[in-house]
């Protein structure tokens, strides 16, 4: 009985987490914020639902298999998301207009795909900081 309750709570909460992720994918304004919604909460939701499967069956082999799936999800989601974000930045996807700081701006050589050091030209850095200060003042 208690096992069924735990399983039901895990199932419904996992589905709700995935729903929040899908809602964020539709509603958020930017590629990167959408990515943040889609990967984190959706993978956490699927992990919760797989935990529900493990609790429901309660056999060793099935628990091992669900742990395998969870391990794969936690191994592959960050890598895939990193590649999508990198490609999105390289393609010049427009950022949201309320973005506070873009640390790669002016420092990333798009042609050579190399991150150049920001030590010798501090102009861009101070520019970013000024922009951030302006934004914070606007918020206040």
């Amino acid at each position: 009985m208690i096992r069924e309750w735990i399983c039901a709570i895990l199932l419904v909460s996992g589905a709700l987490f995935m729903f929040v992720g899908a809602l964020g994918v539709v509603r958020l304004p930017d590629l990167f914020t959408r990515m943040h919604a889609a990967t984190k909460s959706a993978s956490f939701g699927s992990v919760l639902m797989l935990c529900a499967v493990a609790v429901y069956f309660g056999e060793v082999w099935i628990i091992f298999e669900t742990l395998l799936v969870i391990f794969f999800i936690f191994l592959t989601t960050p890598v895939g998301t990193h590649m999508i974000g990198r490609v999105g930045y390289l393609l010049g996807t427009p950022l949201w207009q309320g973005t506070v700081i873009n640390e790669l701006q002016g420092r990333y050589n798009m042609r050579k795909r190399v991150l150049e050091s920001g030590l010798h030209d501090s102009a861009t850095q101070t520019g970013n900081e000024n922009k951030m200060d302006n934004h914070l003042n606007e918020i206040k």
């Binding site: 992720g21 899908a22 994918v25 590629l31 990515m35 889609a38 959706a42 993978s43 699927s46 797989l50």
Partner: peptide, 15 residues
């Protein structure tokens, strides 16, 4: 990103 999300949802449906 949407395709990735759809696959996560499919894993939940399978569970």
């Amino acid at each position: 990103v949407a395709l990735d999300l759809i696959v996560s949802l499919a894993v939940g449906l399978i569970a």
